[in-house]
Amino acid sequence: MDEESSGTVKKFAFINRKAPYGTIYALESLEVVLISAAFDQDVSLVFADDGVYQLKKGQGTKAVGMKNFSPTYRALEGYDIEKLYVEKESMEARGLTEEDLIVPVEVLTSQEMATLMDEQDVVLSF
């Protein structure tokens, strides 16, 4: 990190709206999230639409021959990334509840999510 970026703290939101494995977006988004931890920014992760599926418990990828990256969501706390938000409408529309998710999250309504996103400085979507 150079002089100009040290000391600046911005609100970063990573918006996850895609399911895992079908495309690489979820995995590569997680890689950016992990890197962002090194920059001491105010990071939030948002899961909406099919992005909620990224957090589903019980993922097993042996038979598809891909890496199961879902345990990484549990490791985020160790990187001081603790703000995970799930949109209530998206979760319910997919027949899921908080008990189905691999990590503790804060469930927000669409309106609350609108406010959260509006407060961000940088919004990254993958």
Binding site: R17, E89, S110, A114
Partner: peptide, 11 residues
């Protein structure tokens, strides 16, 4: 559903 989701979550 991007358009619908945007309309749902835009302030």
């Amino acid at each position: 559903n991007a358009m619908s989701s945007c309309l749902r979550m835009a302030k």
